[in-house]
Amino acid sequence: MSVVEVEGLRYEYPGGEAALDDVSFSIEEGERVALLGPNGAGKTTLVLSLLGVLMPAAGTVRVLGETMDEEHAFDLRRHLGLVFQDPNDQLFMPTVRDDVAFGPANYGVSGEELEAAVDRALARVSATHLAKRAPHHLSGGERRRVAIAGVLAMDPAALIMDEPSSGLDPAGMREITDLLLDLPQTLVLVTHHLDLAERLCDRALVLDSGRLVHDGPLVDVLSNGAFLIEHRLA
């Protein structure tokens, strides 16, 4: 079954200008897809539409076969774990443990089940020892890992990573790359870094000015110099 299916998606800014126009694609379970495109191409808008935070002017988004609308947004978005570019935006609870528990607790998980979910998620990103710490006392790499644990605790079908390399030193970046390679979930990687995309993904979606200009093997993008320059990817 498709994890995400997008058909004829259009999103308009308040002025009526299209941020996304006629975007269609689907992502199957276990796929690793890079979402590429220059600044302002509509990547973040697309991601927020997938999660039903933004509602499209036209077209549909389906998550695990269910149509995303106001009514189902709450139930459906738990299947897509979005990790934000700046972990500071995502780690808002007083301690790491509380933060990782935030998602599952919102979906009614409590008691021992909640503790188990939190422990499992923290162990998955090797951050068990950070449980009692306050988010603002963590290093960049630690914050990123904890932010990933926060969505893993919700047991999502897919992870959507928005520029996971930002703010990381090379060692931190290697840790995150290794971790992402190791996770079994379907992966959508939003990035400007072609080398990171190459390590993690085999398929690429390229957005430019709100339109999908490529959907296919990532190699085809990487090996086409003219295409890279035309769409400001290199």
Partner: peptide, 20 residues
Amino acid sequence: ERIHAAMVVRGYRGVMPQPF
């Protein structure tokens, strides 16, 4: 605004959970 979006995508519906 970004923090609010981050809360919404993890199921926030106006009530802060008291996990532990």
